[in-house]
Write a protein that binds this DNA or RNA. Structure first.
Lengths: 212, 212
DNA sequence: TAGATTGTTAATCGATTAACAATC
DNA sequence: TAGATTGTTAATCGATTAACAATC
């Protein structure tokens, strides 16, 4: 039974399902039951069956789930087959790390260009992708629209860069700046934050639980 | 009233509280009410008062919260004043991005060394931090223990590196590899994952909601 | 067929929101 | 004092877990 509104708790688990199913698939596993998958992921079988049933009935009584099929269904749900494109703003160390090492294609994305203000970086392609000057952003996206803009710029230009991306009509912003973006001013653009500092402070809490 | 076990939902909000309180503090705001803070953070006043009351009563009826004091309390709760130290394993683009740009000190951490297997990187300090060969990890940590190990190594050596860190007695691992670490084999070490792929796939889902 | 395992409904648990007495 | 706002208790809402009929 497909549900209308999927809770964000479920959505945040989907990439992990995909990752585990992809591992199983690559390892040659043909079928898996909810309880076996639950065990390997540290969840309950109930939860997995509930989560999947938000999107349809992908299993078979007495058999379980076909790994290849379920992996494909989850990929489809996540939008991995939609030929999403992205541009990266900021070709510093972090931008370069993503450009050169992140498996965009394996996640259903195609990186089309990087932008930076540093004239020493502009012009020299990175990882097969052209590096253009930030001034060319609007012209480039007018010709060749992108689904997502990746923000790996310095914090002080984060909001301004986000607004330029929104004005160019991107659907989403992948935000690596430690800034909170004013989503209400970004006209419906979805923002996904990767806040390094929040993550480290969570770890800091976890390793500090005992009193000093 | 201090609660025994703090839920992870609350813990994950604490860094955001800190970030907002720090902004207010730097901006010169002296006091703030739960409702004003709630409005600026997109939460409810009830939730903020509930969250904070897990750790103590930091406010005052009729007045609200003193920003400087509350910021300090949250920092204390997060363990930001414990002189945590960390080492980074892997000085590739991502490791370098963290070493050179991440504000460790502002988050209560001191980066003491980086390790890599590449002889071209070993020996040349980055951002004031020595870069040592991975072979020296155990000796180094025997002399100078660290609270946290940061994993910015290639995925294929992620598990092995995590096990070495655990054997050296780190309290936490900040994991940037797209691998799931076997926490049960890491003898109590707390793991905080930064899964870029999971984050991008969540964004992919959000921008793909309408059927094709 | 008998055994296994799903999808779904019901029960439980936990987290968020609302309400309000206490009090600055 | 009167107004504001907390900390906390109670009510609601949502998410997880358990149970089981359906069925492969």
């Amino acid at each position: 039974m497909r549900k209308e509104k999927i809770s964000s708790a479920v959505i945040r688990r989907l990439p992990r399902y995909y990752r585990h199913l992809d591992d199983l698939y690559r390892g040659g596993t043909v079928r898996i039951s909810s309880s076996a998958l639950a065990k390997s992921m540290g969840l309950t079988a109930s939860q997995i069956r509930q989560d999947l049933s938000c999107f349809g009935g992908f299993g078979q009584q007495g058999y379980g789930y076909n790994v290849e099929r379920l992996r494909g269904e989850v990929a489809e749900i996540l939008g991995m087959n939609r030929n999403h494109t992205l541009v990266i703003l900021g070709a510093g160390n972090l931008g370069r790390a993503l450009i050169e090492n992140f498996p965009f294609a394996a996640n259903g994305f195609r990186l089309v260009a990087a932008f930076d203000v540093n004239p020493e970086l502009v012009g020299a392609p990175l990882g097969g992708v052209p590096v253009l000057h930030m001034d060319e952003l609007e012209d480039f996206l007018a010709d060749c629209s992108a689904s997502v803009g990746v923000l790996t710029v310095p914090a002080r230009v984060a909001v301004e860069s986000a607004q330029r991306l929104a004005a160019c009509g991107v659907a989403g912003i992948w935000n690596f700046t430690n800034m909170e973006l004013p989503e209400s001013e970004l006209s419906g653009v979805r923002v996904e934050n990767v806040h390094f500092a929040d993550s480290l402070l969570t770890l800091s809490y976890m390793i500090s639980e005992e009193p000093v």
